[in-house]
Structure formats: C-alpha cells, structure tokens
Simulated scan of single mutants.
Amino acid sequence: MMMELITAASEVAATAAPVVASGVNGSLTLGVAGAGAAVAIGMIGGKAVEAVGRNPGAYGNIMTLGIIGMALAEAIAIYALIIAFGGR
C-alpha cells in the first residue's frame, strides 16, 4: 500500500506543474508526520494500559501523563500541517 502511494505521488509530481508538485510534497510530508503521530499515540496508550494493569492505584497519575504525552505527539502532526500548507 505504501509503495503504491509513493509511486502515485511520484507520477503526479513528474507530470504536474510545480505548484501541484509542491502540494503533493506537502501532502506526503503531512502523511508521514501524521503516521508518526498515530504510532506514538498508540504506543503511549498501550503502555498506559499496561501500567494501569500493573498498578491500578496509580490510574490518575498515569492517565494525566498519558494525556499530556498524547497531546505532545499530536502537536507534531499539527506543526507538520502548518509547515506543509502554511506557505500558500
């Protein structure tokens, strides 16, 4: 699936005008940053569930730290959105 997307993006970039090609590059950048943020959020959530399973009494502290970590990971995707499409 990923190779098909990369191939399609390169074909569009090769045949399109420079403005469209820069949009494809911005979309690719945003897709990679979004995928990285999604992986990070999944890992944070999974580790939080493991931690609560080991020590249910620390649920409140673990939840607070998990939400802060997820918000920071999501901020990376928002920064990529601003960088990828902010110059237009």
Rank of each mutant, 00 (worst) to 15 (best):
M70V: 13
A35G: 12
G23K: 04
G45W: 02
I78Q: 08
G26R: 03
A73P: 07
E74I: 10
V20F: 12
G60D: 13
N55I: 03
N25Q: 12
G31D: 00
G53P: 07
L28V: 14
L72K: 05
G46M: 01
I62V: 10
V19E: 14
T64K: 08
A77Y: 05
V24L: 08
G34Y: 01
I41Q: 09
L28G: 01
G57K: 07
L30F: 13
V24C: 08
G53M: 07
I62L: 02
Y59I: 15
A75R: 14
E50A: 11
I67M: 15
V24P: 04
I78C: 06
V52M: 07
A40L: 09
Y59M: 04
E50Q: 09
G57C: 06
G36Y: 08
A48M: 05
E74C: 07
G42D: 04
I68P: 03
G66Q: 15
N25C: 03
M63I: 09
I62D: 00
V20M: 10
L28F: 12
M43H: 06
I78G: 05
G46Y: 00
G57W: 06
I68T: 03
A35W: 10
G42I: 00
R54P: 02
M70T: 11
V39C: 12
L30C: 08
G23W: 08
G42T: 01
N61P: 00
A38S: 15
K47L: 09
G42Q: 01
V19M: 05
A40Y: 03
A75P: 11
T64P: 03
M63D: 01
G66E: 12
I44V: 15
G57A: 05
G53K: 11
T64H: 01
L65G: 12
A37C: 13
L28R: 00
A73V: 12
K47G: 04
I78L: 15
E74F: 12
A51N: 08
G46H: 02
G42S: 05
A51L: 05
R54V: 06
G46P: 00
A35H: 06
G46K: 01
A38C: 14
G57M: 11
G69P: 11
A38H: 14
T29N: 05
A77W: 10
I41Y: 10
I67T: 12
A35Y: 09
G36D: 11
S27V: 02
N61L: 12
S22Q: 14
I41R: 08
A33G: 11
I41K: 03
A58G: 08
M70K: 11
E50V: 06
G34Q: 04
V19K: 07
K47E: 05
I76M: 13
A48E: 03
N25E: 14
S27H: 04
I41W: 13
A58M: 09
T29Q: 01
V32I: 15
A48Q: 02
E50L: 04
N25S: 10
G46V: 01
